[in-house]
Computed example of a mutant assay.
Amino acid sequence: MQGSRIAALGHYQPAEVLTNEDLARMVETSDEWIRARVGIRTRHIAGPEQPVDHLAAQAASKALAAAGLAPADIDLVLVATSTAVDRSPNMAARVAARLGMASPAVLDVNVVCAGFTHALATADHTLRAGAASRALVIGADKMSEVADWTDRGTAVLVGDGAGAAVVVPDENPAGTAGVGPVLWGSVPEMAAAVRIEGTPPRFSQEGQSVYRWATHRLPALARQTCERAGIDPSDLAAVVLHQANLRIVEPLAERIGATRAVVARDVVDSGNTSAASVPLAFSKLLERGEIASGDPVLLFGFGGNLSYAGQVVRCP
């Protein structure tokens, strides 16, 4: 069975920026309070005319252009999201329609903040099995639509955006451009620690529980992910975690021995964009030239359910 690789990345964020000072006029908070607890400075907010599939299609178009492919070249679309409003048509079908695709398989993946890494693993497995030839994997969420803007504990966290990857067969599975084996799982007894529920749906979480789990469990899981890929953490060029909290993101590379890795800190400028956070941060690192083609990068998503999934990939 052949492997797969990421051929290109793309990302998109709405133009409107909400600062900590703006939030301080909406709820009882301050720039100092927010930065001290989660490290966030700004976040991007989508308007009513920018639904989830709009965000997703914008990122997808950029990834396709970077890969030199047309929408008709894609036969599998996976959209990781937890903020789709309607049950049908799903976000993947809406993105396919926006892009004018021919007849792709269209699946949504709802694993909340770990959605993109789950979807990437699913695409990798599908290509390995020969059930698809080229896949478009997108993480997109409009968290502002499910935020409780009167709750300073969660309102300060969220942002909107999308990131996308074009995944193609790897002609040299043992080479330097592959998608590595996934390490995934969940903690069912903590499934309610992150919630988007109710009518209308609202985001809430047990922040301290998630923080304790992430700081205590993530390092070992990240090391196991590297082991599955056959790479020592010291050889990683970058670490891209779900961008939940700067206090979780920053220490991880050192704790797993990724001493030379660039650590994605997009949470500072984008907030928590849920399923979009990993591809969004990854795409920005590549766009800024902080990582180069062929570099090994650890991707790791975690959050709702409490689910997690990670893999080591090579930069396109």
Rank of each mutant, 00 (worst) to 15 (best):
G257W: 10
L299E: 07
D31G: 09
T122S: 14
P200D: 04
L120S: 08
E32C: 01
D141Y: 12
A229G: 08
L285K: 07
L76S: 06
V158P: 04
S234K: 15
W149S: 03
Q50D: 15
V263Q: 00
I196W: 02
I256Y: 08
N90L: 09
G163I: 12
G310Y: 11
L241V: 04
P219E: 01
A129N: 11
M26S: 01
L157R: 07
A63S: 10
R94V: 00
A238I: 03
T122I: 14
G139S: 08
R223D: 11
G130K: 04
P14D: 09
A214E: 12
G100V: 05
D53I: 01
L157E: 00
D235Q: 13
P169M: 09
V262M: 02
L252I: 06
A60V: 08
P279Y: 09
R37V: 06
D108I: 00
L136S: 01
G130P: 03
L64W: 00
S82G: 12
G289K: 11
R134S: 15
V137N: 01
A63G: 10
V52I: 12
L299M: 09
I45F: 12
T126D: 11
S307L: 14
Q58L: 09
L299G: 04
A222F: 02
T273R: 10
S274F: 10
L127P: 14
D53V: 02
R43F: 11
H11L: 09
L299I: 14
E290N: 05
T176V: 11
N90F: 04
T29H: 02
G185Y: 10
D31I: 09
L280T: 05
R314Y: 12
V109Y: 00
V312R: 11
V267A: 13
P188E: 10
T273N: 12
W213V: 03
I34A: 01
A96L: 07
A132S: 15
G10A: 07
K62N: 14
A132Y: 05
R128L: 05
R87D: 09
A275Y: 07
V106A: 15
T259S: 14
A46F: 13
C315F: 00
G3Y: 08
W149K: 02
V168T: 15
A281T: 02
M91N: 05
M91F: 01
G39N: 13
